[in-house]
């Protein structure tokens, strides 16, 4: 299990990296934390002919507050930096909570926030989180940059809008409205393993404890993370009663996801999980938002 040979580039700045990517075109590939890419290369399932290693581009790793109170995260910020960041913990506890479910600490010490999103694994937490928090993603290429919403960014399993010469540079998590809280729920075969079904649900309440906004994202149960439209339809403007939540959970499980059968779970079982997890997550998010 040794990787095939490749050419190696180690730029020190974003500018250089973008130049490398442009020069290499289809034969180039970004190396971020390597925690998905290198295992795939060891199995020779991935065999890029050239790697542009971003690990020496110090300017791509940061966590900072935006002017409007959101959080901007440089693509090369390590997962564990986000997990333990005091600003993140305080302003967006759902982010810190989610980070803890990604693999094990040794992986989170290397894996990057942007890398996981760019990788677009349907079972991964961060693409789902960025969708749940309605993140904006900054995509750069030599001489150009553009903003893409999380919703637009992922187009299929392991597929994004990124072109070979593009780099995901920054992820901006917009500020949360007052009385907003999230809840993360998953079932995986083992702790630290990829989920068989999971949800990140974020709920905003008004003063009367009616739902002002809800973003209930299902993931690992379809080709991409899925934002439940039904949740918004049923809950927004209404009291999030047990019955309403149960209705959303049942509907989402039945109609809004598309889990396949695999070695570890049948479609039926994974739909059952979606129902249970959505119910538990929405209930918890509402409870937290009320606090």
């Amino acid at each position: 299990m040794k990787p095939a040979p490749f050419e190696y580039y180690a730029p020190k700045t974003t500018e250089e990296a973008l130049q490398n990517l442009t020069d290499l075109g289809y034969s180039g590939k970004v190396l971020a934390g390597g925690q998905s890419l290198i295992p795939a290369m060891n199995f020779r399932m991935a065999r890029p002919s050239a790697l542009v290693d971003l690990n020496n581009v110090a300017e791509l790793a940061y966590i900072k507050l935006t002017d409007d109170g959101g959080i901007a995260i440089g693509t090369m910020t390590r997962d564990n930096a986000v997990e333990h960041d005091p600003i993140v913990k305080q302003r967006m506890p759902i982010v810190a909570e989610t980070m803890g479910y990604i693999a094990h600490p040794q992986i989170r010490a290397r894996g990057t926030f942007g890398g996981a999103i760019a990788h677009a694994d349907p079972a991964a937490q961060l693409p789902a989180l960025s969708l749940a928090l309605n993140a904006k993603l900054l995509v750069k290429r030599k001489g150009a940059e553009r903003w893409v919403t999380a919703e637009e960014f992922i187009v299929g399993p392991f597929m994004t809008v990124l072109e070979p010469e593009d780099m995901l540079a920054e992820v901006v998590l917009p500020p949360l409205a007052p009385r907003t809280a999230g809840s993360y729920k998953q079932v995986s075969r083992q702790r630290g393993g990829y989920a068989q079904a999971a949800t990140i649900s974020v709920v905003s309440l008004d003063d009367r404890n009616h739902v002002k906004d809800v973003r209930c994202v299902l993931f690992s149960v379809g080709e991409t993370p899925i934002l439940s439209k039904y949740a918004a339809k049923v809950l927004v403007g209404n009291e999030p009663t047990e019955a309403a939540i149960a209705d959303v959970a049942a509907y989402a499980a039945k109609n809004e996801c598309d889990p396949g059968s695999d070695l570890h779970g049948t479609t039926e079982y994974r739909r059952q999980l979606v129902e249970v997890l959505v119910r538990r997550a929405l209930t918890e998010a509402v409870l937290r938002a009320k606090k």
Binding site: Q35, Q106, R110
Partner: peptide, 23 residues
């Protein structure tokens, strides 16, 4: 050599990481 077993764990700048999935 795919990051699961942890036998290759080392400290990298003081943090435990898997050396089999780093170059």
């Amino acid at each position: 050599e795919h990051g699961l077993c942890g036998a290759c764990t080392i400290l990298f700048d003081g943090q435990s990481v898997r050396s089999c999935i780093m170059f």
